[in-house]
């Protein structure tokens, strides 16, 4: 009876049926419970239960991989919220963006999204630099480095597709320049080398209305169809691939022996 009264609120909460149904190991206080808290959570068990000492030093990891993942989540949430107010049409896109700062409550949602995107490019680059500087790409982590390079490329592509959505001068010209590079793609771009070889008699198979740029833009120049395509790629298409690759990336960290370190 006396013992029971001495128990703290936290301990009693940890013994309640609700808590125990969610977190089986109770309040993580003992060494065993703390390990179980990691192993028993679908989110936390990205980590192993125990890690080498140098892995918790900011000087070693810079925390940049974790922050990149965190920013991806922040950008997903703010992006979903922005989608409530944004219509991807030439008629409304620009005015919807203005409304986001002027009419929508908490008018910094677009700022969070835009600056977060810039910050994510930086954190991903810093993460890559850290991995290179510590030689962590070396065997057995070669494959995961490759996945990381793809994730970095997709981060840039995500940012690039988002660039068009405000439909301002910066947007349309950055995308015009960017997609015109596709026009010069060998064989499948109509101004690329080899494209003129793909012809039947006088009829060019690869022209402005049938090349890879046309497929990307959904038209001959950046317009209504391009805005919709970039919107879909930005909101669904690329994040879908990024999430798959992220799962591989995280899983392989564990499978390749956890965080790199000296032997």
């Amino acid at each position: 009876m006396e013992n029971k009264n001495k128990k703290s609120f936290l301990e009693r909460m940890g013994e309640s049926q609700v808590w125990k149904s969610i977190i089986r190991s109770g309040v993580p206080r003992s060494r065993r419970q703390r390990m179980q808290a990691i192993l028993g959570s679908v989110f936390l068990h990205l980590h192993p239960a125990r890690i080498p000492k140098h892995a918790v030093k900011i000087g070693y990891t810079w925390c940049m991989g974790g922050l990149s993942f965190f920013l991806f989540i922040v950008l997903t949430i703010t992006g979903i919220l922005l989608m409530f107010y944004y219509r991807p049409t030439v008629e409304y896109a620009y005015t919807d963006i203005i409304d986001m700062t002027e009419q929508v409550p908490l008018g910094i949602m677009r700022e969070l999204h835009r600056w977060g995107a810039h910050a994510m490019v930086l954190t991903v680059w810093l993460h890559m630099l850290r991995v290179f500087m510590t030689g962590s790409y070396k065997p057995p982590r070669e494959f995961n480095w490759g996945v990381g390079v793809l994730l970095m490329t997709l981060t840039l592509f995500l940012s690039f597709t988002g660039y068009l959505l405000p439909w301002d001068q910066l947007a349309i010209w950055a995308i015009t320049v960017g997609t015109n590079m596709a026009r010069a793609h060998p064989f499948i771009g109509h101004e690329g080398p080899g494209a003129s070889l793909l012809a039947i008699g006088d009829i060019n198979l690869v022209h402005a209305g049938s090349d890879v740029r046309f497929a990307l833009l959904g038209g001959r120049f950046v317009g209504e169809a391009s805005l919709l395509r970039f919107y879909v790629l930005h909101c669904i298409g690329v994040p879908f691939i990024v999430m798959i690759l992220m799962a591989v990336h995280f899983w392989r960290i564990r499978k390749d022996g956890g965080i790199s370190g000296p032997l």
């Binding site: 038209g219 120049f221 169809a225």
Partner: peptide, 12 residues
């Protein structure tokens, strides 16, 4: 599916 990416009608 690739052909699906190429629209038949353009609004230009």
């Amino acid at each position: 599916i690739v052909r699906f990416l190429f629209p038949n009608v353009l609004f230009e």
